[in-house]
């Protein structure tokens, strides 16, 4: 790999732009493809560009054969995101665990005493009201949203916004009873059963989690399950 290719790749990633590194396996020749890359059709045939688009969509690298040459398409999508509402104790574990798992994490909490760099070293903090912050952060199909404040004043506006987004996971802290009341409030403002069923609540897989760290593990596990689905066949 040429240093200039690596530099370009790292700079695209810094700018959160999806791109594909195409390597001709026969001799190692490489081209960095993106929608904005301005490659000539002779240098980079359209059929290869389509394969790149498809690989980005599937978020999976693959090989492609063209004119007796094998190409490897290495997908570089921007990182998946996790938007956490509530700078609570669980978040102090969930945020760094999610960073370790490759998520770009943003913590949303307008309460200044909770959302401090001291409690969340290295995690970007957004101190706006949750719905305002979410509108600006524009969650997409590669985004997970988790509400953890346990306070309807903060959680509800976030959930209302999240339910109108394409986020792949939406989890809300609270017991079944708390969630029942939450569903009633959401129904009262027009959300149907199909909407509220999207909310994972009580949040996290049932692994008997007790401590904040264990609850964070159960949430991250449930997010992973939503993203990939189960693999092992049950007998």
């Amino acid at each position: 790999m040429k240093l200039s290719t690596l530099d370009n790749l790292l700079s695209e990633k810094e700018r959160k732009l999806p791109c594909v590194l195409v390597t001709r396996l026969g001799d190692g020749h490489q081209v960095l493809w993106s929608e904005y890359a301005n490659l000539s059709k002779t240098e980079f045939p359209e059929i290869l560009a389509d394969a790149c688009r498809d690989a980005l969509l599937k978020d999976k690298g693959c090989q492609f054969e063209l004119a007796d040459e094998r190409y490897f398409l290495q997908v570089h999508n921007p990182p998946k995101r996790l938007l956490i509402v509530g700078a609570v104790h669980i978040s102090q574990f969930l945020a760094p665990m999610a960073v370790m798992s490759g998520y770009g994490v943003t913590l949303i909490d307008p309460r200044g005493a909770w959302a401090t760099q001291e409690r969340f070293p290295g995690i970007p903090l957004d101190k706006r009201w949750p719905d305002e912050a979410l509108a600006d952060l524009a969650p997409d199909a590669r985004t997970a949203i988790v509400t953890l404040t346990h306070d309807p004043k903060l959680d509800d506006p976030a959930l209302e916004f999240a339910l109108r987004s394409e986020c792949f996971y939406l989890g809300a802290l609270g017991s079944r009873k708390t969630h029942g009341k939450r569903v009633e409030r959401l129904a009262a403002i027009g959300f149907g059963e199909a909407d509220t069923r999207r909310i994972a609540a009580p949040v996290g897989l049932d692994i008997g989690a007790i401590s904040p760290a264990e609850i964070a593990v159960s949430i991250l596990a449930e997010m992973t399950l939503s993203l990939h689905g189960p693999r092992r066949k049950t007998i």
């Binding site: 690596l6 790292l10 990633k13 570089h76 960073v99 370790m100 490759g102 290295g122 970007p124």
Partner: peptide, 17 residues
């Protein structure tokens, strides 16, 4: 987002950086 002082877990970004 990955912070500069994060340890090298071997995430895709870390490896290339």
């Amino acid at each position: 987002m990955m912070t500069e002082n994060a340890p090298p877990f071997g995430l895709e970004e870390d490896v290339l950086k």
